[in-house]
Nucleic acid binder design. Sequence first.
DNA 1: TGAAATGTTGGGGCG
DNA 2: ACGCCCCAACATTTC
Length: 463
Amino acid sequence: MDNPALMKAAKSGALLPIYILDDETAGEAAMGGASRWWLYEALKDLDQQLEGHLRLYRGAAEDILPEVAKLYGASTISWTRCYEPWRTRRDRRISETLDQIGVTTIRLNGSLLWEPWEVLKKDGEPYRVFTPYYRKGCLQVEAPARPMTEKPDCRFCKAKAGDGALALNDLALVSPVGWHDMLEPHWDVSEQGAQKALSVFLEHGLDGYKAGRDFPARTNTSRLSPYLHWGQISPNQIWYALEGDAQMETCDAPDADIDHFRSELAWREFSYNLLYHNPELPRVALQSKFDGFEWVDDEAQLERWQKGATGIPIVDAGMRELWQTGYMHNRVRMIVASFLIKNLRIDWRKGEAWFWDTLVDADLASNSASWQWVAGCGADAAPYFRVFNPALQAEKFDPKGDYIRQYVPELARLPQKHLAKPWEAPEAVLSEAGVALGKDYPLPMVDLKKSRAAALEAYQALS
DNA sequence: TGAAATGTTGGGGCG
DNA sequence: ACGCCCCAACATTTC
């Protein structure tokens, strides 16, 4: 448990652990469906670890906290610092309010290796390009804090009747039956689950990570993103676990793999850096010339993408993985995003919104920074003309077709040669594999070559 | 953390 | 032996 805010509170006296579900202040930034399910499970786990002492609330934190503080006579309230713009603003207001009634507030970093204001260029400006941000910035300032290894020694204060706390189910995070039932078998939503995922990765994924991370059918990725997002593991714990410290997990993977994995952790930091210094990142293109881009507004097409019925196997496999598990392999995220933005020319914000609703690792910083990256409108973005060819990508990164076959089973019997673009397969091959295109599996919703050309033309019109 | 079009080179077949 | 053509295989440029 690497939670500085909890540790601080546990050391300063009797403890009243609180979680507030604050949709009211979040407004449009309120968390999506997959997140709510994960949160529901995570709160259950947390409450167990806190021996049933977790108090739950629902509403505007700036109204609730002062009330609770008064009722319990709290002297200090500490919490983990957040970086979403709406939370940053709210937390500042809360500190002011509590200060006025004599309650000390302490905000501590429990989720980033480096604070966004600590990694700046020599001229004091924030970095906008990843590589110098990481190499000249992060790696040259003070090393990340060592994770805390001792469990906080909690002495809880007695709950008071009428303190307004709710039962977990009253937070209405999940309905009794629903989509989340599908997610459940894929995840162990607990801190223990996070540690398990870390050791599985260190043992089986890290060796060969650098090359293997691009292949969705391999098990070289860590799948730690949801745990990181929800604070069930800290980036510091991961960072130092890679060192093979005597007290921590040992690790003997090649340096190139370790360095590359660390740089991926740093991409997360970079996203937070961008969001902190550009609060409009989730809604506004960093390159203003994209303001005039003419996006295609087509709900029916968007829905085909969302449901994994585009007729492009690698795209559909990715979108179905997302729907079934609340997760998608990173390489495939880039492919489906490129397809939506470039081949369909649908606004990146529509894709961002779908990911926000369906990913269990939905994270405002990473999600918005990454969508802008693919769209080519971000700070250090892929140039707009870098259009993925999803069929080529499939042949390159799913060479045996295992990933496509898993999530698009109706094509499972197609020979490898035709799996990436079934629309080019001879009729005899299709019927041999039991596939009637347009019936068992859709015809491609766009022509890849034509839609690529149309995208280039549309982008060209900008400048 | 592309892809496609275009340019260059060099080996082998062949008259 | 020689030049010519063809075309992989690579390299460079363009979008």
